[in-house]
Design a protein around this nucleic acid. Structure first.
Lengths: 336, 336
DNA sequence: CTGTTAGCGCATTCAA
DNA sequence: TTGAATGCGCTAACAG
């Protein structure tokens, strides 16, 4: 690696010691401004770049965080990463990305590999197939972690989530107030707080209005996409709901197709409201009302708090930050 | 950092030398299977994780690549990252993400910072505002780089692109064969090969059919979103085209709104074809035909080639790999 | 096959 | 305010 400019190069050139150069580069109070300036100037001139590995090895600070998410090619997560990256950049931090594809073994492999000091902290949105949180309980003891969106209830770490309960409740109320008599529910993420809360909000609204409710009105998410279609079709055919709430977008789509195939007019015969995070909302079929999470803001919030923790400026380990989502009513769904 | 298990820990425990442990962990041929097994077993038992900084410092291999893209929250790029991450994972590589937000200064800052040995290689899709490629010419001399999607013509590096020329040509021919007489063009990415090729394909098709063409039928992309809307509106009002080709999706949307505002029926009065990469295609207004790039495959291809280069198994430095995109005709646009 | 030795580049004592 | 010395954890020569 000859030709590489290191602290040694700078020191030799300026006839000062390596230690002085190192301190000057780190803007230490021990060094005179004059010396610092000389070092900075030369560093710039020679395009010196601090070797991160050496620096990390010595200081145990990597200036890197990891983001573990189920999927990147998903509008919610890509927006969240956008927010995370933006905050990280401001602090000159680097961002590593890992996608689990909803596989909890992969998730465990990632977190294990991150224990070796590759990163200073981790942001995680857990895989929906992870039903064992023991692993995370160990993890949070060893390295700063902030959970976002997909979180576990009983883990001793900061969590950033959305108002799932309230938004599901509001959406359901909205439908009822529009005159809907039978509102079905497409259930997903059932082992995550998110999924549970959404369902609870839906139930609460039905309860408030004394609405009909049977288990037959619920369709549970299946990993096998074609089964979702079949299950929804069966439910809609048999139960004939006049509205549906989809707890994730992947269930809204087959529902939409089912309605088409059964010649149901949307939204006249069947209103669909879906939790969603498309940035293509304006292009969506206007009959689909969506509940949009503030993905970008969640990313920023999560990263912001992680950095506070890293800087030892955060003192409420267990706090749960809940951001508000928005009910986007598209023209032909507004019932007014 | 007491309690951290290092090669030293393992060596002491097994009463062998540090070097032997290190070699065993790296599965060196110099070490007997018996010794290796002992080391591996203990490593597993003690949950030893190699310190990446120390390893990098010594070996100059980071097992990390960087991806520099304009924007993450964009379906094309998020799909591409998906492909990249998938390939990287297979090789136990880590992936750093940087988004330039189309700012070429940011882009330069990123590439500079990556010269310090933080990564083994870089995948770049350049910012559309970068009109100076000198910087990249220097970069590719210092570190393996593969360009994808947004590339420069005259850089000595592998490039992965799509068949922009052909797909624009085909799309335009399709419109002409449908009976369109006046096809406008919404021009973007004009200082990138991608943008140039798309436009060239469009022109070629017009030429082939001896179609009308004037500069007034072209609208150029403006960073100011509201101006795009105004410009498209002016063009459509004055020129009254019966079809429009949008070279990027961000121009298809305002065009769609303009058509609406001018009470033009889509696709009867105005057909719109857009280069696009939404995974929500099925939900799109069915009047919008799209030309979809194989984003995921591009990511995989780019990463695959970068790894070949890193493994010294790639010998065609300048090669340009062109993947095929698909013209997706939605029901109400098919002119048959 | 195994061990000894010597750094990779940097940050941190401590002494001057 | 500066510098000499030490070692972070690991790998690579080289010798045994």
């Amino acid at each position: 690696m000859k030709g590489t400019v290191t602290v040694k190069t700078l020191a030799k050139e300026l006839n000062i010691s390596i230690a002085t150069v190192s301190k000057a580069l780190n803007d230490s109070y021990e060094i005179s401004l004059e010396t610092k300036q000389k070092v900075w100037d030369l560093a710039k001139k020679l395009k010196y770049e601090r070797n991160p590995s050496a620096s990390n090895l010595r200081s145990h600070k990597t200036k890197t965080i990891a983001v573990i998410i189920p999927e990147i090619a998903n509008n919610f997560f890509s927006l969240a990463i956008n927010g995370i990256e933006e905050i990280a950049r401001k602090r000159d931090y680097h961002v590593l990305i890992y996608q689990t594809h909803e596989n909890s073994d992969t998730e465990i492999a990632f977190t294990d590999s991150l224990l070796s000091g590759r990163v200073d902290g981790i942001l995680i949105s857990v895989s929906s197939n992870t039903n064992n949180n023991e692993h995370f309980k160990e993890l949070v003891k060893k390295i700063p972690v902030v959970f976002f969106d997909r979180v576990f209830e009983d883990i001793d770490a900061v969590k950033i989530t959305t108002d799932d309960y309230e938004s599901a409740y509001n959406a359901t109320c909205h439908l009822i107030e529009c005159g809907c008599k039978k509102i079905a529910y497409l259930f997903a993420l059932n082992n995550l707080v998110t999924g549970k809360n959404r369902f609870a909000g839906y139930l609460k609204a039905l309860e408030k209005y004394n609405m009909l409710y049977t288990d037959e009105m619920i369709v549970h998410y299946d990993k096998d996409t074609s089964k979702n279609y079949e299950n929804i079709k069966a439910m809609v055919s048999n139960q004939k709901p006049d509205a549906v709430i989809a707890s994730i977008e992947e269930l809204a789509l087959p529902c939409y197709y089912v309605a088409r195939e059964l010649n149901l007019n949307i939204p006249k015969d069947l209103k669909i409201i879906s939790f969603s995070n498309l940035n293509t909302a304006p292009l969506l079929n206007p009959s689909l009302t969506t509940i949009e999470q503030p993905a970008f803001e969640i990313g920023k919030e999560a990263a912001g708090i992680l950095f506070k923790i890293l800087e030892k400026k955060y003192f409420e380990p267990n706090e749960n930050h809940i951001l508000k989502s928005r009910l986007i009513k598209r023209e032909s769904t507004s019932c007014g």
